[in-house]
């Protein structure tokens, strides 16, 4: 194991990853049954990135999330009931049913929101970093983005600002190989995405996004630097989404072989096998945890389904402070 962790920590990481996986599988199920309406970009397969990165944070640190943001919200401490209810557009949701899947946010946990615009969190993250610098705290901001967002203009504007001002922002690039259907090879002039940090004077490293401890170690090192005023950095996490871009995606742009390859690198299986092999957890511990999470997700789903929609009077509330 790349770092030594205790049993409680192992259970925590595994639980969070299982929560994300089962949450996403459940939403796919709800979409198929038309209980969930609208779109949803699911995070299944990428769990180790959110959980590993968030393991390096304090509760008062900020994150900006992505177009595929359920995993970040769960890993940053969002409540499963409220997140599930939000995705169903219910009054009990974390955004009172006004945000939905693409706008999952929970400012009370430091999550400044998923985003319907690819790269929409980039400039906001720079501002959160600037705010930390001006308020002279030791917080950091993690800016999650996908490979697709690295081709947006605002990516370059924001990294230039953060690099110039040495702001405490760490970019977590989730390279899942495709921006919707277009592969990194066909969309980006460089396929080694860590190179995109170089012009902005920040260090970058690429790690396996399937290895929760590798992600945590890389992020933790940069977070420590950022808290010490040493500025920004980037961690590129190679990962894969199991589902298509959204529910209507037939996945014709990728091969069965590729999907099989990545299924074998499953972050939850890899981590639980490691924990069992090293005697940190028993197979029974893993199975019990899986069952526990299943119950949590069932409860969250029941809560969400039984919750009311927002009242009609909510249409015009919350526009201004």
């Amino acid at each position: 194991m790349s770092t030594s962790i205790d049993k409680g920590t192992a259970i925590f990481y595994l639980q969070k990853m299982m929560e994300i996986r089962q949450f996403e599988d459940k939403i796919m199920d709800l979409l198929a049954q038309n209980i969930a309406e609208g779109g949803s970009h699911l995070y299944a397969g990428e769990e180790a990135v959110a959980v590993g990165a968030m393991a390096a944070l304090r509760p008062d640190d900020f994150i900006t999330s992505t177009h595929r943001g359920h995993g970040h919200a769960i890993a940053k401490g969002g409540k499963l009931n409220e997140l599930m209810a939000e995705i169903l557009g219910k009054a009990t949701g974390c955004c009172k049913g006004k945000g939905g899947s693409l706008h999952l946010a929970d400012v009370s946990t430091g999550n400044l929101g998923a985003n319907g615009i690819v790269g929409g969190g980039l400039a906001m993250a720079a501002g959160a970093g600037l705010s930390i610098k001006l308020r002279k705290t030791e917080q950091v901001t993690l800016c999650f983005i996908g490979d697709g967002a690295t081709n947006q203009g605002v990516f370059h504007e924001s990294l230039n600002m953060v690099g110039t001002w040495r702001l405490p922002v760490i970019y977590i690039v989730e390279n899942n190989l495709y921006g919707m259907s277009v592969s990194v090879k066909r969309a980006s002039a460089v396929t080694d995405l860590a190179k995109k940090a170089v012009p902005y004077n920040m260090p970058a490293v690429t790690v396996s996004g399937q290895d929760v401890l590798a992600v945590k170690d890389a992020v933790e090192a940069y977070v420590k630097n950022a808290r010490a005023g040493k500025g920004p950095a980037m961690v590129v996490c190679d990962t894969y989404r199991y589902y298509g871009h959204s529910r209507s995606d037939p996945r014709v742009y990728r091969t069965k072989e590729e999907e099989k390859y990545w299924a074998e690198q499953d972050p939850i299986k890899l981590f639980s096998a490691k924990c069992v092999k090293e005697g940190l957890l028993s197979q029974k511990d893993v199975e019990e945890l899986d069952k526990f999470v299943e119950n949590e997700i069932e409860e969250a789903t029941k809560f969400a389904i039984e919750s009311p929609l927002p009242g009609d009077a909510e249409l015009y509330t919350d526009l201004f402070a």
């Binding site: 906001m124 720079a126 600037l130 924001s158």
Partner: peptide, 21 residues
């Protein structure tokens, strides 16, 4: 003084505004 980066200027204004400035 910022770079000539209007999206970053305005967007960073938002990020700072929602985090205490």
């Amino acid at each position: 003084d910022t770079a000539i980066s209007e999206a970053a200027i305005v967007g960073a204004g938002l990020g700072a505004a929602i985090t205490g400035m």
